[in-house]
Computed example of a mutant assay.
Amino acid sequence: MASFNVYSVLVVLFVTCGAVMATKENDRIIMENNCETKMGLPCVLEVFMSIFEIGSISNKCCGELVVLGKVCHSTLVKRTLENPLFKDLRPATIIAKSIQTWNNCLALIDSPSPSA
């Protein structure tokens, strides 16, 4: 539980201060696509935990991730990897988890609902 709180604080700090750490290109993409305003904080945390730690994503948050869009999703992951707080992570592993998360959510949202 304590590690979740630590990561929650880190995510909040990163979301609010991350622009200072990011490259200009990622900042431009994020700003032009309004990426930081398209998801609620609870879903941001869920997605973050599923990619950078261990966790699953609810259907609701998968929906928000798909609405966020692949460009925003990929750019926000790249920007997170540029943050010195995450320098010990393996980028290839994180990017693979990011792609897997995106594909799983996309398949979930695109699949037909079971009928009653």
Rank of each mutant, 00 (worst) to 15 (best):
N5T: 06
Q100P: 00
I57W: 02
S8I: 00
C61Q: 03
S74C: 01
A96Q: 11
L108Y: 00
M21G: 08
M31I: 15
D27Y: 05
S50P: 02
L89Q: 09
S56G: 12
E64S: 11
T101M: 10
V15Q: 12
L108K: 11
P114D: 01
S115L: 13
M39P: 00
T16D: 04
L89R: 09
I99R: 07
T75A: 14
K78I: 06
G63A: 04
C17R: 10
C72Q: 08
C43V: 06
D27G: 15
P112N: 05
L106K: 14
W102S: 03
K87G: 00
T101G: 01
E32D: 15
C61E: 01
C105Q: 02
L85A: 15
L65S: 05
N83I: 00
N33V: 04
P42H: 04
L41W: 05
R28S: 14
M49K: 10
T23F: 01
K38M: 13
Y7A: 09
A96Y: 03
P114Q: 06
I94S: 03
D88K: 11
T16N: 14
S58K: 05
S74F: 03
P114S: 05
S8A: 12
Q100M: 07
A107D: 14
T16M: 08
V20Q: 02
K38R: 15
V44H: 02
T93N: 05
L106C: 00
T80C: 11
C105L: 01
T75S: 14
Q100V: 03
E32L: 15
I109N: 01
G18P: 03
N26F: 09
L45S: 02
N5H: 11
V66E: 08
N59Y: 10
E53F: 13
L41T: 08
A107K: 14
L10A: 10
E53S: 15
S74Y: 02
N5S: 10
